[in-house]
Amino acid sequence: MNEIDARSLRCPQPIIELGKVISTMRHSDQVTLLSDDPATEPDLSAWSRMTGNKFEKISESTFVITKLSER
């Protein structure tokens, strides 16, 4: 599984980095996002709704994202 280490990056950078990686992935592929920015979790929630992809919170700073759309 791909991993994006976005720890110490501040918003919107973790979401931008995620967008770059997910555009190279295939349907149903997963990527782990490491981020300690307090805006990441609420923004992942909004990003999932807007793009049609899914995320799951594994720990305080670890999120697993599954690609479910072409965006």
Binding site: R10, C11, P12, I15, P38, A39, D43, S45, A46
Partner: peptide
């Protein structure tokens, strides 16, 4: 957005609604 706030926290209003907090 968090980057414009003194405490670097995103808007609790936008977060509570589930609306994008950055940009």
């Amino acid at each position: 957005s968090a980057c414009t706030a003194d405490n670097l926290e995103p808007s609790h209003v936008l977060a509570a609604m589930g609306v994008l907090t950055h940009g």
